[in-house]
């Protein structure tokens, strides 16, 4: 636990504790980003996978102009979801295999700082992949996906997906079945976030009224808040020895 501030002149202490908390979070993010830029094993796998997925969808769904309009959102989110599990799994297995997780747990920081650190770095990787997939998709299919509304939805959806995904990945890497288990655990729980994200993205792409897509957006926001809060509270139970 971080320092408990109960002193009369505890304001500075409290500030220091909060500062330490954020420092711990940013240290974990930095560690992941630096390791990634050295090895590229996570991003390259996610990216190649995403491009292959789009290639397969192209022929499986015969993405001609007419179909594309209705299924683009679905194709994008299916790709993001699968690439996301790949990244989540890898990022947590690295921690587990190299004993980093134990090291992190020994560090004198609040456990939830570890959760947020991993959450933000996972989110960053997912967003980087999405930032590359979107222009590629735009070029390949001659549609402009760079709409602020769509980008906001992708951000909201990715936040919800990685918030619960980070927690579940921390669990699944500690099981015997490991990599196989994460999608099985994650998909039924993330069903709502994927569905609302598809609905909202599709609405933006087809130029629907805002009234029509405000409900899925609200649902995404509710989901994000609930699952960040609950994962933050439960992370302790998942990593304790």
């Amino acid at each position: 636990m971080a320092t408990k501030a109960s002193h009369p002149n505890s304001l500075s202490k409290k500030e220091a504790a909060i500062g330490g908390y954020f420092k711990a979070i940013s240290a974990i993010i930095w560690k992941d980003v630096r390791a990634e830029f050295r090895s590229w094993e996570l991003l390259s796998a996610m990216l190649v996978f995403s491009l292959l997925a789009i290639l397969i969808f192209n022929f499986a769904l015969e993405l001609d102009v007419k179909t594309r309009q209705s299924v683009t959102a679905g194709v994008l989110w299916a790709t993001f979801a699968f690439a996301g599990t790949l990244g989540l799994n890898r990022s947590m297995s690295i921690e587990k295999d190299r004993g980093c997780l134990d090291g992190l747990l020994l560090a004198p920081v609040d456990r939830s700082a570890i959760y947020f650190g991993k959450f933000f770095s996972n989110l960053a990787f997912m967003l980087i992949v999405e930032a590359i997939v979107l222009p590629v998709y735009s070029v390949l299919y001659n549609t402009n996906l760079f709409q602020p509304g769509l980008i906001a939805i992708i951000l909201l959806g990715s936040v919800g997906y990685t918030s619960v995904g980070t927690l579940l990945a921390a669990m699944s890497v500690q099981t015997r079945t490991r990599d196989v288990l994460l999608p099985i655990l994650l998909f039924p729980v993330a069903f709502a976030v994927l569905l609302s994200a598809v609905k909202a993205s599709g609405g933006f792409l087809n130029g629907a009224d805002f009234a029509e897509i405000s409900f899925p957006i609200n649902l995404l926001i509710v989901y994000d808040i609930i699952f960040i809060a609950i994962s933050f509270m439960l992370f302790d139970a998942v990593v304790e020895e």
């Binding site: 927690l167 579940l168 699952f227 439960l234």
Partner: peptide
């Protein structure tokens, strides 16, 4: 943990 998350979802 999982049952709680599943129940909430």
């Amino acid at each position: 943990v999982y049952a709680l998350i599943g129940g909430l979802s």
